[in-house]
């Protein structure tokens, strides 16, 4: 066979196969076309696309679909905050609602210096593993100190301090709640930004025992209950002071007489990443 003929046959056969397949694809494109709401893509441009899960849905795309279906309110995105809430409301043509910023609060201050250690824990250094055998601290309610919450935080908004308890940087925390889900002792809670007064202890032990095992535990003495200017603003429940956020004033007037200094107000302004790092750096030098 001559070379020229072979070239022609090759070109024709390959071109033919290509044309047939292209025709098939063209038909398939028309016939099997799935209609996706084009607004989903537009909503994804507004949403932060961080897939943090703070809204309760697995990711931003899922939230976009729920928003369009009307199943989710426009102020549900925690990572986006007020700006995204407004833009979403405008896009969806619904009334804009104020987005409340949520913050994670670690309700335990019992670190190396304060909490008694009565055991030696030599297992895997994660909180879940330590919690199976109650860890090495005598208090069975407090922070285990292995930092699973810090590992869970995607926003670089948490760190373990030198004392062995986690701190939240309130300038960085977006309120996704990943740390809350990671903590096996449930000592981290999500609170709206306007909550300032917290009892930094979760121990339900009786006062004498609680004081023995941790220097900053709530011993349920009831002084904050008496000092609270609104009756019933702070109550005692299961050997622990509980703040009623609907009524209790969020200032520190009721906390001054606390013998163990486990209840106080207004920590958020003080703890920023900058402040934390400057202290850490000073210590390093």
């Amino acid at each position: 066979m001559q070379t020229g003929t072979m070239v022609i046959i090759s070109v024709v056969s390959m071109g033919g196969i290509g044309a047939v397949l292209a025709a098939f694809l063209a038909v398939a494109d028309k016939k099997f076309k799935t209609l996706e709401d084009p607004r989903v893509e537009l909503l994804l441009n507004i949403l932060p696309s961080s897939n943090c899960g703070g809204c309760g849905y697995p990711g931003c795309r899922m939230l976009a679909e729920k928003l369009l279906a009307g199943d989710a309110p426009p102020n549900v995105c925690v990572a986006g905050g007020n700006r995204v809430a407004k833009e979403l409301a405008a896009f969806l043509g619904v009334e804009a609602k104020e987005h409340t910023r949520m913050l994670a609060v670690v309700l335990c201050k019992g670190g190396h210096a304060e909490a008694l250690r009565n055991a030696r824990y030599k297992g895997e250094e994660t909180c879940t593993a330590a919690n199976l055998t109650a860890g090495d601290k005598a208090c069975t309610y407090g922070c285990l100190g292995y930092g699973e919450c810090v590992d869970a935080c995607k926003y670089d908004a948490m760190a373990m301090d030198a004392n062995g308890v986690p701190v939240v940087f309130y300038d960085k925390c977006i309120g996704c709640g990943a740390c809350v889900r990671a903590c096996p002792r449930n000592i981290i809670e999500m609170h709206p930004e306007d909550h300032k007064l917290f009892v930094y202890c979760r121990s339900k032990d009786k006062g004498a025992y609680a004081k023995k095992v941790c220097a900053v535990s709530c011993i349920a003495c009831g002084l904050c209950v008496k000092d609270c200017s609104v009756a019933g603003g702070i109550a005692l429940k299961d050997n622990l002071a509980v703040v009623d956020y609907a009524t209790a004033p969020q200032n520190d007037e009721s906390t001054k007489r606390c013998p163990t200094k486990c209840i106080f107000s207004g920590i958020e302004e003080k703890v920023t990443k900058e402040a934390f790092l400057s202290v850490a750096r000073k210590k390093a030098v």
């Binding site: 297992g123 895997e124 879940t128 593993a129 199976l132």
Partner: peptide, 11 residues
């Protein structure tokens, strides 16, 4: 410590 990891995972 395999059995330790497995215990945690089981939990």
């Amino acid at each position: 410590p395999l059995v330790h990891w497995i215990r945690v995972a089981k939990f």
